[in-house]
């Protein structure tokens, strides 16, 4: 049983890492900003979530799981928001210019 749980946790973490590696390759190789953002935000969120689940399985502790869940939530929310902001800046440069120019 414990060996199975251990393996499950490890597999989760490995999968998460794979997501992150793919995201990193994507940021490096993809041609334009939007596709980079696309791969970054999604794969990033998924990767962190998987690693967090894997870690939670490993430690089997309520308090730790709670903070891991909070971390995942924060990454998801802030990843989406920053992605949005960067894209908005790209399409609507007037906002940024107005900020800096004045």
């Amino acid at each position: 049983m414990t060996a199975f749980v251990e393996a499950l946790g490890l597999a989760m973490m490995l999968a998460g890492t794979a997501f992150l590696v793919v995201a990193a390759i994507g940021v490096w190789r993809l041609p334009d900003l939007l596709s980079r953002l696309h791969v970054l935000t999604k794969a990033d969120t998924a990767g962190v979530a998987l690693i967090a689940i894997g870690a939670a399985i490993h430690v089997q502790d309520v308090a730790a799981t709670l903070s891991l869940a909070l971390c995942t939530l924060l990454v998801a929310v802030s990843g989406a928001t920053t992605g949005h902001l960067i894209a908005r800046d790209q399409f609507n440069p007037s906002v940024a210019d107005a900020e800096e120019g004045a």
Binding site: A80, T81, H84, L85, R88, V95, A98, E99
Partner: peptide
């Protein structure tokens, strides 16, 4: 004053 950062923020 910085412009507010939009609806998602």
């Amino acid at each position: 004053r910085t412009a507010p950062l939009g609806p998602l923020v």
